[in-house]
Computed example of a mutant assay.
Amino acid sequence: MKPDFPAIANKIVHECLNIQKGESVLIDVREDTLFLGDLIAIECKKIGADPLICAYSDEFVYRTLTETDPQYLEIPSQIHRSVVEAAQVIISCFMERKDPARSKDISGKRLAGMRSYSKNRWNRLEKGGCRWVGIGFPTAEQAQHLGIDFDSFYRMFWSAVDIDYEKLGGQAAKIQRLLKDSQSVHITNEKGTDLTIELGDRPIFSDDGRISSEDLKQGAVLLNIPSGEVFVAPLHHGTSGRVIFDLIIREGKRIVDLELDFREGRAYPVRAKEGLEHYLDLVNHASGDKDLIAELGIGLNPRITQMVGYTLTDEKIIGTVHIAIGNNKTMGGQNDSDLHWDMIVMKPTVVVDGVMLMEKGRFAEEYS
C-alpha cells in the first residue's frame, strides 16, 4: 500500500483543520516523518499561513531521558513555551516514538519529567484559540515491539485514514444526540467489566475527521488521524464499578487484563495478569488528578477491527469503548494532570439511560 501523502497533507490543512491565511502553525515531526511535515508546511505556505517545523529524533528523546538530571527534565522550556503560545494550530506528525522499545527501562520518574515538559501544549489548548491534530505514523520498529506483522499494521493504519467521513460523521452525530440527552451509561462485558458512568451536562464531542466551526463553538479543538470516536469527560463522582482492560502497551511495556475499581470516579488498581508494577510506576509519578476518570470514548472507525496495543488505533476500534484517567480539561472536564491515559474495553455491552447502544461490541441498528 502506498499512501498518497501529498493528498493527505492537503486534506489535513484544508479539510481537517481549515487553516487560514496568516495563522501560525507549529508542526512537530520525528526524523522519519519530516517529509510529511514538509508537505503540510508547503500547503500552509501556499495559502499564506505561517508554519514552523520542530523535529524530535528518538535518539534525542532517549538521551535526554537517560542522561539529564531529573530536576532539569521538569523545567519548562521558555523557548518551547513561547512557540506554543504563538501557535494557532499545532500538528503532531507522530503519536508514538519510532522505536517505543527504547523507553522500556526508563523509570516513571524520568518519564514524568518529560510529560511535565510537554504539558505546555495542553495548557495552550485549554486557553482557547488553538486547535490540534495528532497524526500516527506506523513503523517496523513499532510493529516488532507490538509483536505484529508490519505490512498488516501499515495497511490497517492507512486504510483507516481512507474512509467515508460523511458516514462516520452521521453515525457519530446519532450517538452524540443519544448521550447528550442522557444521564448515565452502564458498561458490561464477559470479562467482568461492570461500570456505571454519570454524564451530567458535560459536552459530547466527536472525532469525525474535521474540526468544524460548530466544533470550535463547542470547544472541540482536538482531532486524531486516524479518526473515529465519540467522547465525553464524565462527572467523576458519579462513576463506580469495575473495569478489565484487555491489553495496554505504554512506554515500551505490556499490561494485560488490568483490573481497576472505580469509586466516586477514582481508579483503584486490583490486579493484572502482567504489568501491574508498570501501571503503578507511571501513575504514582504523574501529577494532579492522575487517577480520576477523564474520558469515556466510543470507537467508530470501520477499518480498525483488531487490538494491537497501539493506542491511537485501538481506541478507534469500531464497537469498543475506552476509559481514560488523568487530564480532561481540553474536553470540558476539570481534571488537571500531566497524564491522560486511554485504555480499551473489548466487546462491551453499553446501555445509555436504558437504551441499548451496543451489545457485545455490535451497535444497535439505529446507531450503526
Rank of each mutant, 00 (worst) to 15 (best):
residue 310 Y to P: 02
residue 256 V to Q: 14
residue 152 S to T: 15
residue 100 P to Y: 02
residue 261 D to C: 03
residue 61 V to Q: 13
residue 135 I to K: 03
residue 27 I to M: 02
residue 232 V to H: 02
residue 81 R to D: 12
residue 98 K to Q: 07
residue 120 N to G: 01
residue 317 I to K: 13
residue 290 K to F: 06
residue 273 K to P: 00
residue 165 Y to R: 09
residue 140 A to N: 01
residue 10 N to L: 04
residue 294 A to C: 01
residue 345 V to A: 09
residue 138 P to T: 08
residue 256 V to R: 15
residue 24 S to A: 14
residue 56 Y to W: 06
residue 221 V to G: 00
residue 47 I to Y: 12
residue 147 G to C: 07
residue 169 G to A: 15
residue 174 K to Q: 09
residue 55 A to Q: 12
residue 345 V to M: 10
residue 150 F to C: 05
residue 335 N to I: 14
residue 284 N to D: 14
residue 249 I to W: 00
residue 106 I to Y: 10
residue 230 V to N: 09
residue 31 E to F: 09
residue 139 T to Q: 03
residue 137 F to N: 15
residue 82 S to W: 00
residue 292 L to K: 11
residue 263 R to D: 08
residue 279 Y to M: 04
residue 44 C to L: 05
residue 312 L to W: 01
residue 255 I to L: 02
residue 160 A to Q: 02
residue 195 L to G: 05
residue 69 D to F: 04
residue 213 S to T: 05
residue 12 I to C: 07
residue 99 D to R: 08
residue 88 Q to T: 00
residue 180 K to P: 00
residue 141 E to V: 05
residue 58 D to R: 03
residue 274 E to Q: 15
residue 48 G to H: 06
residue 318 I to F: 07
residue 22 G to R: 10
residue 296 L to D: 10
residue 62 Y to Q: 04
residue 70 P to Q: 07
residue 149 D to Q: 07
residue 316 K to N: 12
residue 149 D to Y: 01
residue 307 M to V: 11
residue 221 V to F: 04
residue 364 A to M: 03
residue 350 V to F: 11
residue 57 S to G: 14
residue 111 L to W: 08
residue 28 D to N: 13
residue 214 E to V: 09
residue 238 G to L: 12
residue 163 I to T: 06
residue 42 I to F: 11
residue 182 S to N: 06
residue 4 D to Q: 08
residue 259 E to W: 03
residue 77 S to P: 01
residue 258 L to S: 09
residue 282 L to I: 15
residue 105 D to Q: 09
residue 353 D to A: 02
residue 298 I to A: 08
residue 268 Y to C: 10
residue 271 R to I: 02
residue 101 A to Y: 02
residue 164 D to S: 11
residue 6 P to C: 08
residue 327 N to S: 13
residue 58 D to Y: 08
residue 168 L to I: 03
residue 92 S to Y: 13
residue 186 H to L: 11
residue 166 E to M: 01
residue 83 V to S: 04
residue 144 Q to L: 12
residue 55 A to T: 15
residue 101 A to M: 04
residue 51 P to F: 11
residue 119 K to E: 12
residue 209 G to E: 11
residue 190 E to W: 00
residue 3 P to D: 02
residue 53 I to D: 06
residue 351 V to L: 05
residue 47 I to E: 08
residue 90 I to A: 04
residue 296 L to I: 06
residue 13 V to F: 05
residue 227 S to N: 07
residue 57 S to R: 06
residue 139 T to H: 03
residue 176 Q to M: 14
residue 10 N to K: 15
residue 178 L to E: 01
residue 198 E to W: 00
residue 10 N to M: 09
residue 342 D to S: 10
residue 212 S to G: 10
residue 177 R to H: 05
residue 286 A to Y: 06
residue 356 M to Y: 04
residue 37 G to H: 12
residue 297 G to F: 06
residue 135 I to S: 04
residue 363 F to P: 03
residue 242 R to Y: 04
residue 139 T to M: 05
residue 305 T to A: 07
residue 31 E to S: 15
residue 218 Q to H: 09
residue 329 K to Y: 04
residue 236 H to P: 08
